[in-house]
Write a protein that binds this DNA or RNA. Structure first.
Length: 593
RNA sequence: GGGGGUGUAGCUCAGUUGGUUAGAGCGAUCGCCUGUCACGCGAUAGGUCGAGGGUUCGAGUCCCUUCACUCCCGCCA
């Protein structure tokens, strides 16, 4: 493409263009002023070209004074660079452009943050001047990567026969799940739309409508507090749903899609090409979490039974076990020679996490326990611990004792912490897994109430007429997550498409038929008019790109993110609105600060 | 809502046990320099030390309150 702004982009010129007259446009990335000779690195989206001008040219003085990041057009001639001045760092490094004339296309004030720099800046200033921040190399490349990943995924989905549909952004609030973003309705005073937390019900309705395979790069909105891997406000999912499928069919599609995507966009190795499947219960026991980082080789073991032995004299734990606590441990291989400080630091760290600390001892030759609590264990009991955990002489054992939920939390954190301290995690791999067989219900520890543990629309496992509804906590669901390197990437399920069964499950969680009919009228109604068995999943796009870009923070792969308080510092959102707007919406504010 | 960290020049940071006029690099402005690619050299400007209060002869430094950003917990079917 040639127009009045450019004949080539800033990453295009090579040796074969030497002698050509060219026009380039871009930003002044860097100037090197030798007084009578000036180098200008001209940058655009594609790359950098060195341009040069000397005092002979009447434009020299003017160009010499121009600010960095000014946008200019350069007319010049491509010339050879002598061998010793070739720059191998840039693609255009064998040539340079001798400037004949130039024109300022966009002036630039003094910069609040430098563009040409690898320094890190406070997020506040980066977000306020996001348009400058986005010019910087690393994040510019992240955003381009994001575009390519999305386009690759879309392409794959099309090839697999999925149809892409849009679903409403203004929809209804749902009683389950996260807090909704609400939008007041002008035409229906006092009523509100909600932004969708996910197109969950719509994609099921698409299946009921007979479209068979659907996908969408779907914006999802949840009004929850931010984390490093969770933007406040909005995020994107590859939302997909298929009819006439079993869990296995979904697994096949998504596993292939993710393997292809990760192989296409990263050089890191995949630890498993076939994702291992871990049941929810197994994950909670062995990793203390339903999003285990499988790069970490440490495993948690339950050794509660040891503390009912007479030859174990660890009275504090024994007493707690008697009152219903359990004991779990983490074995570290061959750590007998680690300094005392290694162990004490972990204990100290655990106390900072709010636990009562982590007890530890090392198994010595002759089967004796060394360390603060080692003396409480007899030779026979150590043998039994070794049998239960696979520990060997020279290994150390970290123990914690508590109620189940609390224990899972601290052992999970300890597993990460100890692995980090021992440098056990290989950063150059992706370790995917499926977490399967989620329980349909769980008991709220505070209220003792039975609640849905995940998605109320999931299909319970087993023959429908054989499900024992008397023991709801034993009912498993066709509900599954994909986890990669300890990050939850996707959540999905085979859906319950049978209204009678849905009423039954909702009644267990304390919802009457009337409430279900009211809250989920669209869904329930649709399912009573010939619904196909169906299921789906929704991998998180932002997190996928975050992993591929090797970033720890989701804002590094989001073009215009909000800050932790859900404010857009560049656009000043959220903002006040005027009285007229409020009046139209039938809204009055309680108080104004 | 709770806990941790951070806050000093436009940007990134240093600032000792409380002690004279708060420093450096980058950037800006001015000057010198024809082969740099983080060009080099010299000079100048630029500060309510996040804000408020307190202790003290004296506070960037100690104490209290508060604000902002960030990380974590809660929350996230």
């Amino acid at each position: 493409m040639t127009n009045k702004y450019r004949t080539h982009n800033c990453n295009e010129l090579r040796k074969e263009h030497i002698g050509n007259d060219v026009i380039l446009s871009g930003w002044i990335n860097k100037k090197r002023d030798h007084g009578n000779l000036l180098f200008i690195d001209l940058r655009d989206n594609y790359g950098v070209t060195q341009c040069i001008i000397d005092k002979e040219n009447s434009n020299f003085g003017e160009l010499e004074k121009i600010q960095l990041e000014t946008v200019i057009r350069v007319d010049g001639k491509v010339v050879n660079r002598s061998n010793e001045t070739i720059n191998k760092e840039i693609k255009t490094g064998e040539i340079e452009v001798v400037i004949k004339k130039f024109k300022v296309l966009g002036t630039c004030k003094e910069l609040p943050l430098p563009v040409f720099s690898d320094q890190e800046y406070a997020e506040e200033i980066r977000l306020k001047y996001r348009f400058l921040d986005l010019r910087r190399k690393k994040i510019h490349e992240n955003i381009i990567l994001r575009s390519k990943v999305i386009s690759f995924i879309r392409n794959q989905m099309n090839k697999l026969g999925f149809l892409e549909f849009q679903t409403p952004i203004l929809t209804s609030s749902s009683p389950e799940g996260a807090r909704d973003f609400l939008v007041p309705s002008r035409l229906n005073p006092g009523k509100f739309y909600a932004l969708p937390q996910a197109p969950q019900q719509f994609k099921q309705l698409i299946m009921v409508s007979g479209f068979d395979k659907y996908f969408q790069i779907a914006p999802c909105f949840r009004d929850e507090d931010a984390r490093a891997d969770r933007s406040p406000g909005e995020f994107y999912q590859l939302d997909l749903e298929m009819s006439f499928v079993e869990q296995e069919d979904i697994f096949n599609v998504v596993e292939k899609l993710l393997v292809n995507t990760f192989k296409e966009f990263s050089n890191k190795k995949l630890l498993f090409n076939k994702f291992p499947r871990i049941t929810y219960n197994e994950a909670m026991l062995k990793y203390g979490s339903d999003k285990p980082d499988l790069r970490n080789p440490l495993i948690i073991n339950d050794i509660t039974e040891i503390f009912s032995r007479d030859d174990v004299t660890f009275e504090i734990f024994k007493k707690l076990v008697k009152s219903g606590s359990i004991v779990r441990c983490i074995v570290t291989k061959n750590t007998k020679d680690k300094p005392r400080s290694f162990f004490d630091n972990i204990d100290k760290w655990a106390k900072e996490q709010g636990a009562s600390g982590l007890a530890y001892f090392t198994i010595e030759k002759e089967l004796s326990g060394k360390g603060p609590v080692g003396k409480f264990f007899s030779k026979e009991s150590l043998k039994e611990i070794m049998r239960l955990t696979g520990a060997e002489v020279g290994d150390s054992i970290f123990l914690a004792c508590s109620k189940k939920k609390e224990l899972e939390k601290i052992t999970s954190l300890a597993r990460d912490k100890i692995a980090q301290d021992l440098d056990l995690i290989d950063n150059e791999i992706f370790a995917f897994c499926w977490v399967v067989d989620y329980p349909m219900f769980e008991k709220d520890e505070m209220t003792n109430k039975i609640e849905f543990s995940h998605n109320p629309f999931s299909m319970p496992q087993g023959e429908i007429n054989k499900i024992n509804f008397e023991k709801p906590l034993d009912i498993l669901a066709y509900q599954y997550d994909i986890v990669c390197n300890g990050i939850e990437l996707s959540s999905g399920a085979i859906r319950n498409h049978i209204p009678e069964l849905m009423y039954k499950l909702f009644s267990i969680a304390g919802y009457s038929k009337e409430i279900v009919d009211k809250k989920f009228s669209g869904m329930i109604n649709a399912l009573s008019y010939g619904a196909p068995p169906h299921g789906g999943i929704a991998p998180g796009i932002d997190r996928i790109v975050m992993l591929l870009a090797n970033e720890k923070n989701i804002r590094e792969v989001t073009m215009f993110p909000m800050n932790q308080n859900a404010q857009d510092l560049m656009m000043n959102a959220p903002s006040d609105v005027n009285e007229k707007q409020l009046k139209e919406l039938n809204i009055s504010l309680k108080s104004k600060k």
